[in-house]
Write a protein that binds this DNA or RNA. Structure first.
Lengths: 218, 218
DNA sequence: GTCTATACGCTGATAGAC
DNA sequence: GTCTATCAGCGTATAGAC
């Protein structure tokens, strides 16, 4: 799966190489997450990874190839939760709650990954356009089928599935992407458990409350 | 108001100067909106504004000072809608609907401004931290008082006002900041009126539906 | 006031010693 | 395979002619 954008020199696996590559990818995720693609420098990534700068080029080729490797890691991670939670076999309430909790956990545990995705979208998503219009599109289509089942079972009202998913993504990812705004408002230096919990409860009330609107609509 | 970060040389008003400054600010908003602060180049701004590059430095000083001028324009704009719509004198439903419509209109009409704000938050908000912890904080405090009145009048349930505002901002701004994701999903080249309308209806149902939850909670 | 020409730092990337 | 030393190019910013 991660072979599609492999380094230019793929001689052998080699334990030291794997360790260096992992360190570089982890450092790259942090640095790209702080500054975006253009703002990040190979120097800073090398320093943070604890390797000489040329080694990064040796392992990953260009800066853009390194960046795309990082993006790929994030993309695969990003989809998993929905296939687990937003499936017709579950109850709607349970599915939405589990999914929203998972998305909030992602914002808390991998904020840099979320920010890299946000930067990429702001830049115009040139590096992931194919992924968005194929993989993510099918991903949303599966959610549409799930919502359709739930609607016929009167577990939720009819709604545009794309825009509903969009709303959930934006609300949950804001706790990573726009955390600076929230910390300035709360006065906390960083977002704490209590902030994530309050945000989670707010989002849950909006989305689960919507599901319960079924009665008002006949 | 916009005097706080004035150009280094403020000899006289002068009609040609004002025209050039306006062209530069407009071009800067577009270019910063596309690439963020680091990714934008003075060359590109100068070309897009139709002025020689040194003139920008002459009028605005450094790149960072130009950037802060653009940010200031955006900030003042950003607050206006809430003071008009989210006030106790209105009905809750009317207030939320008007506010959300205004925020969606902002995403449609000034997407670059919305993106610049998003970039700035992703970068850590170093240029607007003071603004966030003073002006925006008081702004949210006023919303909290409005929601308090509405709650006592049984127009909406109790909720954490900061997180509710955060949710509304993230959902509406996503139609500017993450529009690439939406266009890839819809298949449209750019977001069209029908997309903004569908998004608006989705957000309205989430938020207005929440207000109606008052009955279930006693 | 305005703009051409230029200085100079920092970037990504590589050549070549080990 | 690994890393020191270095290059070419683009970035911001300014000196100085007009």
């Amino acid at each position: 799966m991660t072979e599609t954008l492999s380094p230019p020199h793929r001689a052998g696996p080699g334990a030291p190489r794997q360790a260096a590559e992992a360190a570089i990818l982890a450092a790259a995720e942090r640095v790209f997450g702080r500054h975006g693609f253009r703002g990040a420098s190979m120097n800073e990534i090398a320093r943070e990874a604890g390797v000489p700068k040329p080694n990064i080029h040796y392992y990953f080729g260009t800066k853009e190839e390194l960046y795309r490797s990082v993006l790929e890691n994030i993309m695969t991670f990003w989809l998993q939760d929905a296939d687990y939670w937003l499936v017709p076999e579950r109850q709607a309430q349970e599915g939405f709650e589990g999914y929203i909790r998972a998305k909030m956990a992602f914002s808390r545990e991998r904020p840099d990954a979320s920010r890299i995705f946000a930067y990429e979208l702001l830049q115009g998503a040139g590096n992931i356009h194919h992924y968005l219009s194929t993989t993510l599109r099918e991903h949303v289509a599966r959610r549409a089928r799930t919502f359709d089942v739930w609607r016929t079972e009167r577990q939720m009202p009819a709604i545009d599935p794309t825009h509903l998913m969009f709303a959930i993504w934006s609300m949950t990812q804001a706790y990573a992407d726009m955390s600076t705004q929230m910390t300035a408002l709360t006065g906390h230096a960083v977002l704490r458990d209590v902030d994530f919990e309050a945000g989670l409860q707010t989002i849950l009330r909006l989305v689960l409350g919507f599901c319960n609107d079924i009665e008002d609509r006949g």
